[in-house]
Design a protein around this nucleic acid. Structure first.
Length: 264
DNA sequence: ATGGTAGCAAAGCTA
């Protein structure tokens, strides 16, 4: 069994102890991190290696930054989206591990519908879809996971009202783009295990704003996703979210999301 | 409710 987890840590150096504690409990084979907020030279490599992980890092000063941590050797690393090579932000890293191609992606937040940053978000997602199509042709187990900054459906947020307007994370344009990834052939690992018609799937979110007691009131969104190729989806055994990490002192605003795949 | 909180880095930007 292979456990693959994704976590936007919102500064790896600030969240190192959180990562250690959670990794020891969840014991994932592969961890896909976003928002490292550091350059590779400041990445706490020794601490991560002491946890038992090999690392592949695409760092950036202050913002963004993604990494792949893996107990097995990391092979064939791809730095940045091949379909968006002019992108100056560190938002995508991909590698081959344990017979699975995995990628850690940090989709731009977009700030506000119609803004320059929103246009950048759409451009990034279009490039991600194109690269995803290129990878799906291989017809192999593939997991593209990370912070997509999109709540795909009303059930992925605490308030249906938020999905009626043009609010970031919930706008029709963003959700249509998310659906286009599904239409390409990608399958949401969490939703395979927890269809939104299931009572226990309600209120399972991966991100809560730091402001206004959002976590205490579970006013969250499910914006962190593991998208699986059909071959990976065939191997799915389990999926879940670890929201209790959000209860720690000085937590990340995101919780880890994970899947378990049987080994071929 | 255009404020509320957090991280980086040293004022404002990003989220």
């Amino acid at each position: 069994m292979t456990t693959i987890a994704t976590w936007n840590v919102n500064s790896l150096r600030t969240r190192l102890e959180h990562l250690k504690k959670w990794a020891n409990e969840r014991d994932p084979d592969i961890i896909l991190l976003q928002e490292l907020k550091c350059q590779e030279e400041h990445f706490p490599r020794e601490a991560i290696e002491d946890l038992g992980y090999n690392v592949a890092i695409l760092g950036q000063k202050s913002y963004n930054g993604v990494a792949i941590l893996s107990k097995s050797p990391v092979e064939d690393i791809v730095y940045g989206l091949p379909t968006f090579q002019e992108d100056e932000q560190a938002r995508y890293i991909e590698a081959f591990v344990d017979g699975v191609r995995v990628a850690s992606v940090y989709v731009p937040n977009g700030q506000e519908v119609g803004s320059d940053k929103f246009a950048y978000k759409m451009k990034f997602l279009k490039a991600l879809r194109k690269h995803g199509e290129d990878l799906l042709v291989q017809n192999e187990p593939l997991v593209i996971a990370g912070d997509y900054n999109i709540a795909p459906f009303v059930s992925d947020g605490h308030s249906p009202e938020r999905f009626k307007g043009e609010r970031i994370l919930c706008s029709l344009q963003e959700r249509e783009t998310m659906r286009s990834l599904y239409n390409t052939g990608f399958i949401d690992g969490f939703r395979l295990k927890y269809p939104d018609t299931l009572p226990e799937s309600q209120g399972q979110f991966s991100w809560w704003d730091y402001r206004s007691g959002s976590y205490q009131n579970n006013k969250g969104y499910r914006i962190d996703h593991l998208l699986l190729s059909p071959k990976a989806a065939d191997l799915l055994q389990d999926a879940g979210i670890d929201p209790e990490t959000r209860s720690e002192q000085r937590p990340s605003d995101h919780a880890p999301v994970w899947i378990k795949l049987s080994n071929g």
